[in-house]
Write a protein that binds this DNA or RNA. Structure first.
Lengths: 172, 172
DNA sequence: CGGTGATTGTTCGGGGACGAACAATCACTA
DNA sequence: TAGTGATTGTTCGTCCCCGAACAATCACCG
């Protein structure tokens, strides 16, 4: 949504479509730029560092969370990664088939499943993560080092705000 | 990746895993918060306004771009939306089956396909978009109005920077 | 004209993503 | 200790998403 068209062009066209309705263009810009950025960064990281190891973005996130906190319960991985448990089940199976993680039923609580990295999985992360972090640096490149923390904080505020709204409404 | 664990906890664990390797934690925070925010916002919008109309996020983006610029070529929709042409083909078929858009081969260039909204599609967007924009306002809520443009601009800088990198490397 | 190379949208295969329904397990109380 | 309600991970169906291979079309130059 930040393609060949100018922001001014888009605003003019939008107001034409909606007549006199008052719109918050700043909020529109935040949303659209947020998604453009996330999409672009995700595609870039998948094609540069991740593709070499046959890894998807979500697969990498699961591996990363597990790497840091193993042994870890699946519900916690989903929480940290920000996706549903249904999604996690599939991704976890893929990672298990590739020999990077193991599943193990919890002794203490028969409902829980504990996830660990295999030696292969750990070796790959040790090699992969520095490359990944280097790319992350390039991505934040155009932003003043001083402003990066400010940016991260604003994004965090948006996240907690939205998740708060989702957790108060759904209890239907 | 901004779940129950503290940022300090995570940093300590990461540095333990990687020994003495120097990492850019600010860049890490930007990336992870970017994705958490995008995920949270997307899920929220899909569940609140979009689900009522049986619309996915991408479906909405396609409809929105078409609504503003119709008639529009498919390659331009993909460019504006930030996804691949293969993805667009599927989504477009879904939207067409639901009766919201039409495909039409270009007279001038037989390779191109022009997309337009049906009357139903236009009616839905006229009703839907104000609701959508209201939710966008809530999402940006915790950010100072003055800082929203700053946030949008930083995200835009990241996007153009990453896309520039992708367009200079690939020509293999 | 005819041929070469580029561009466009579709198809295909594999994986990701979610909500809803489900069986297994647990906690808690009577 | 039996029973009720909540929690967890999986399955299922449906759609999204991409890269690679493909056929149709076009632009350009000889």
């Amino acid at each position: 949504m930040a393609g060949p068209f100018t922001l001014a062009e888009t605003e003019r066209q939008v107001s034409e479509r909606l007549g006199g309705l008052p719109l918050d263009y700043a909020a529109m810009a935040v949303t659209s730029n947020l998604f453009r950025a996330a999409n672009a960064v995700r595609n870039h990281l998948e094609r540069s560092v991740l593709a070499q190891h046959n890894l998807s973005w979500t697969g990498f996130v699961v591996l990363w969370v597990t790497w840091i906190w193993e042994p870890i319960e699946t519900r916690q991985i989903a929480l940290e990664g920000g996706f549903s448990k249904a999604t996690l089940t599939g991704v976890l199976t893929t990672l298990q088939d590739r020999g990077w993680v193991t599943r193990e039923r919890s002794q203490a609580d028969g409902r829980l499943v504990l996830v660990r990295l295999t030696d292969d999985g750990r070796a790959m992360m040790t090699e992969l993560f520095p490359e990944f972090n280097l790319e992350e640096q390039h991505i934040s490149g155009p932003i003043d080092v001083a402003r990066r923390e400010e940016l991260a904080e604003m994004l965090r505020l948006i996240t907690v705000n939205v998740e708060k709204a989702d957790s108060t409404i759904p209890p239907a």
